[in-house]
C-alpha cells in the first residue's frame, strides 16, 4: 500500500534527497559516509578508545588556529626599520597583544601542540596496552608510528617561527644535531639551515615545511589511518568478558592460548 506523500515530503525529496542521489551516483560519497557512520563497534569499548578521536580533534584545532595565524604571520627575519625588530617577531607581537582574540588563537596553537603530542603518546599507549597492533591491524600501527614522527616534526618546525631567542637557539641546536648524523647528516643540516648561517632562508624554508609539507603528510596519513580503522574496526578491551571474537563454550578463553598439548598454559609461545 503505497502511502500518499504529503507535499512536504515531496519537497524534501526534490530539495535534499535528489541532489544527494545525484552526487552519490557520481562519487559514492553518501554511501561512504553511511559506511563510516552506520557501522557497529564492539559493545564493550572503553573511554580509553576515545583518545584517537581526541587526537584528531586536537589536530583539527591546530589546523584551524594555524590557518588563522598564517593570515597575520609574516615569515621574514629582516629587520623592520620602524620597530627595529625582525618582521616575523613583530608580527607575532602584533598577533599576541593587538589583534582581537589573537592571543587566544596563538595560545591555543602554541599549547595545542603540546596537547596534541601528549594525546599521540596516550593513544599509542592505549593501543599498545590493548594489543591492538596485532593481526590484522599491523598497517594501522605503522601509519600511527609515522603520524607520531610527523606530528613531532610539526612541533619541531613550528618552534622556530616566532623568531625569538628561545626559538632561534633551540633550532640552531636542533640543526646541529642533524649535522652529527653519518652520511646524510651534514647534507640534511645544510638543507635545514638553508645556507651557511641560520637566517632569512631558514625561516622561509621552515615555514613551508611547517604549514604545507608536513601537515600535508599528516593529513594523508590520517586519511589512511581512519580508513583502516573503519574497515577493520576497533578491538574490545582485552580483559572484557564479552569481547568481540571470544571463544564460546569455554571460559572466555584467551584467543592466543596454545591449544592441544598443555591445556591452560595459554599465552606461552
Amino acid at each position: 500500500m503505497a502511502k500518499v506523500k504529503t507535499r512536504r515530503q515531496l519537497a524534501v525529496e526534490t530539495a535534499v534527497l535528489a541532489p544527494l542521489d545525484w552526487i552519490d551516483e557520481r562519487t559514492g560519497a553518501v554511501r561512504g559516509t553511511k559506511w563510516f557512520l552506520f557501522r557497529n563497534v564492539p559493545r564493550d569499548i572503553s573511554w580509553a578508545q576515545t583518545l584517537g578521536f581526541a587526537t584528531l580533534i586536537a589536530f583539527a584545532a591546530q589546523a584551524l588556529t594555524g590557518a588563522i595565524l598564517a593570515m597575520y604571520y609574516k615569515p621574514s627575519s629582516e629587520i623592520d626599520p620602524t620597530t627595529g625588530k625582525p618582521i616575523a617577531y613583530a608580527s607575532i607581537e602584533h598577533i599576541t597583544s593587538e589583534l582581537t582574540l589573537g592571543w587566544l588563537v596563538r595560545g591555543m596553537h602554541r599549547w595545542g601542540a603540546s596537547v596534541f603530542v601528549i594525546l599521540l603518546f596516550l593513544h599509542m599507549g592505549r593501543v599498545f596496552l590493548f594489543g591492538a597492533y596485532k593481526y590484522p591491524r599491523e598497517l594501522q600501527w605503522i601509519t600511527g608510528v609515522l603520524l607520531l614522527v610527523t606530528g613531532m616534526l610539526m612541533g619541531f618546525t613550528g618552534y622556530l617561527l616566532p623568531w625569538d631567542q628561545t626559538a632561534y637557539w633551540a633550532t640552531v641546536v636542533g640543526i646541529n644535531l642533524n649535522g652529527t648524523a653519518p652520511f646524510a647528516g651534514p647534507w640534511l643540516a645544510q638543507f635545514l639551515a638553508g645556507g651557511p648561517e641560520i637566517g632569512a632562508d631558514t625561516l622561509a624554508k621552515w615555514y613551508a615545511l611547517h604549514m604545507l609539507l608536513i601537515p600535508g603528510a599528516v593529513i594523508a596519513l590520517i586519511g589512511v589511518h581512519l580508513y583502516l580503522v573503519t574497515r577493520l574496526g576497533v578491538v574490545s578491551p582485552p580483559w572484557s568478558k564479552e569481547q568481540a571474537g571470544r571463544i564460546r563454550g569455554e571460559a572466555p578463553a584467551p584467543e592466543g592460548a596454545r591449544e592441544g598439548l598443555v591445556r591452560g598454559s595459554g599465552g606461552g609461545d
Binding site: 631567542q165 628561545t166 632561534y168
Partner: peptide
Amino acid sequence: WYTEPAEPGTTDFIPRPD
C-alpha cells in the same frame, strides 16, 4: 609570550627545545 627577538650574535640564555 615570547622572549627577546632572535639575535645570532649573543646567547645570553639557554638553548632549549620544546
